[in-house]
Design a protein around this nucleic acid. Structure first.
Length: 593
RNA sequence: GGUCCCGUAGCUCAGUUGGAUAGAGCAACAGCCUUCUAAGCUGUGGGUCACACGUUCGAAUCGUGUCGGGAUCACCA
């Protein structure tokens, strides 16, 4: 189907060209939604064509309006002109045609199937601590962007790079060796990721203490941080790990397995999943070969001490190291290797990285280096950069334990959902299973919506003192709208034979249809801009419009059978789109609540 | 210091490919359940769109500058 705004644009462009013999590019006309205080649905802004045509906006508006009414009888019923704004009213016939065609079609809004594969990398956790609120934003963004791409017809590969090696893991390992006395998540009855995370916090406490003791002995702070025994042990452990020392590897494997068990539970709960998981322990050496090739192509240069660099000053950036003087790889080396590996394995047209905005510079450098190396996937690298989630007191810090833990927050949200539901008392006949399911649906819905409705690139401040709302501009508001519609549709079946509607559409019916028709445009826009918040905000607008309609007009007790059938279809169409859109965001909708 | 991002109602946010009188939610206040689920609806109050200058018929939106907040510029990942 062709979007209405597109049709209007084509029609008006054709009108201008025919009336004034002007080969006007379509982009020179602007079509907007008509402001509610004026009559009409869509508005053509005429100011930009006054000059080339050389007539007043009043004359152009009248001539163009008459042309459109004559030539597009199926589309427009009337027009009015205010200053340079030509307000067009779309025929009822157009709306009812759309309605009849799509009112129960779950594919409405989905784009044609395409060939180009898209890879979306998200989540990418460290295995030394549990997931926190920031990870949730990442997961929700990544997962819903994948669904947005799928809705637009693209095959999507969801990937994840697990940072399972490095000094941070060794910190948890050393602390465990020192303080755990052989304790395990099983023995302590604790979720594995939290168990390991506790030792990461213990490490930092011990490290701080040892550093302070050295400083007290008169050693400089900088020196003390290097010389603290626990840090030296940790660094030695990293060397032993790289050397493959069996007991270190065994402990590393065991502690990682505890973390994975914990992650699995959380991922399942929030609905995150991946088609391909990369482990840094397998990929961290990958970039070195490419560095070697880059040296021979003179993309990189070797300095006297043996370290390898790339000079990006001509591109407005700095010099960047890609390999240490001892030959080991740095962070970006691994990313170059992984980019190459991804390209070889999947050959995706676009590769999107969902990573916090603190890595904007890193990602810019990565793309540039890949381009200079002429890696096949280089131009397709995109960074979906999102702002940090902060507390009123500032940044969250795992090592200081000042984080909003994902599991804690999910539990809390479920409690709130339970409390609110019980207060309202509408679920007396629900079974225990149904209740548990409902609390999950509502709590996850509230949380996901809360994080997804904001423009990704903006940082967010989360106040743990104020619980996430269930009223107003929230996930549960939209879920509630859906449940109310479903309640109506359970009471009355749609008569599929009644599909012509002779009485004119009421204002609210027509406004709702106007909103519904926009859904495919929004799904496309969210994809183009890598931004699920457009969809989240659209769904809210739609639910709000529906609720106004619902309060103004009865469906089941409509003025006539014809109206009832029309409104049942509108209800069905609305609920179909809400379910579809919410699913794209990763939010389920309940039949009752 | 260089680069990038942000600044809209008391708070959280839309609106940013330039269009008509800048919109929601929360909070406050006033109404609406013998009518399809009141997690809802209707209304009231609340604004120097950080500031200045410029481009334009028209600027929250574009440009330049200033102020404020943040990120980054590691042989950490």
């Amino acid at each position: 189907m062709i979007q209405l705004t597109e049709q209007i644009l084509q029609a008006t462009t054709k009108g201008i060209n025919q009336l004034y013999k002007l080969p006007l590019p379509a982009s020179s006309l602007q079509i907007n939604r008509t402001k509610p205080e004026f009559e009409g649905d869509y508005t053509v802004v005429l100011f930009s064509v006054i000059k080339p045509i050389g007539k007043s906006p009043e004359i152009i508006g009248k001539e163009l309006g008459d042309f459109l009414l004559n030539e597009y009888k199926q589309l427009f019923s009337k027009y009015n002109l205010v200053k340079g704004f030509l307000n067009l009213t779309v025929c009822d016939h157009y709306w009812t045609t759309i309605l009849n065609q799509y009112y129960e079609d779950p594919c409405f809004g989905k784009g044609a199937v395409k060939q180009e594969k898209i890879m979306i990398e998200y989540s990418s956790p460290n295995t030394n601590k549990p997931l926190h609120l920031g990870h949730l934003r990442n997961n929700f963004l990544g997962w819903s962007l994948s669904e947005i791409y799928k809705a637009n017809g693209f095959p999507v590969v969801k990937s994840c790079i697990v940072n399972d090696r490095g000094i941070h893991i060794c910190k948890s390992m050393i602390a465990w060796k020192r303080y755990a006395n052989g304790k395990t998540p099983q023995s302590e009855n604790k979720k594995g990721d939290h168990f390991v995370g506790d030792y990461y916090v213990l490490f930092n406490e011990a490290y701080k203490k040892e550093t302070e003791e050295l400083v007290a002995k008169g050693i400089s702070n900088e020196e003390a941080e290097k010389e603290a025994p626990i840090m030296k042990e940790t660094q030695q452990m990293l060397i032993d790990w790289e050397a493959g020392k069996p007991d270190v590897i065994a402990l590393w494997k065991e502690m990682n397995s505890w973390v994975y068990e914990g992650f699995d539970i959380t991922y399942k709960r929030i609905g995150s999943d991946f088609d391909k998981i990369y482990y840094e322990s397998n990929t961290y050496l990958l970039g070195k070969k490419i560095v070697g090739e880059g040296l021979s192509k003179n993309v990189f240069v070797k300095k006297e001490d043996g370290s390898v660099w790339i000079d990006l000053t001509a591109d407005g950036l700095d010099e960047k190291i890609v390999q240490r003087k001892d030959g080991t790889s740095v962070y970006i080396t691994q990313d170059i290797g992984l980019a190459q590996l991804k390209a070889e394995e999947y050959g995706c047209k676009e590769s999107i990285y969902v990573i916090g905005d603190e890595q904007n510079y890193h990602m810019k450098v990565l793309k540039l280096i890949c381009q200079k190396l002429s890696l096949p996937a280089a131009d397709g690298i995109h960074h979906l950069s999102y702002g940090m989630v902060e507390l009123p007191t500032g940044k969250m810090k795992s090592r200081e334990g000042t984080v909003v833990d994902a599991d804690d927050l999910l539990n809390e949200m479920e409690e709130v959902a339970k409390k609110k539901t019980e207060e309202l008392g509408k679920t007396a006949d629900f079974t225990e299973t149904e209740l548990a399911q409902l609390y999950r649906t509502l709590s996850i819905g509230a949380l996901k919506y809360y994080l997804l409705r904001v423009d990704p690139k903006k940082k967010m401040i989360f106040n743990p003192e104020e619980s996430i709302d269930f009223h107003g501009h929230t996930g549960p508001f939209i879920q509630y709208t859906y449940a109310r519609i479903r309640s109506i549709l359970r009471k009355e079946n749609i008569n599929k034979n009644t599909d012509s509607f002779s009485s004119p559409l009421l204002k609210m019916e027509q406004i709702l249809l106007l909103e519904l028709e926009q859904y495919p445009t929004i799904v496309m826009q969210a994809c183009k801009e890598h931004d699920p918040s457009h969809l989240a905000n659209y769904l809210y607008r739609l639910a709000q419009t529906y609720n106004t309609f619902y309060a103004a007009h009865s469906v089941l007790k409509a003025e006539s059978e014809e109206k009832k059938q029309l409104r049942l279809r509108i209800c069905s169409f609305t609920s179909t789109i809400i379910a579809s859109g919410m699913n794209i965001l990763g939010i389920a909708v309940p039949e009752r609540m």
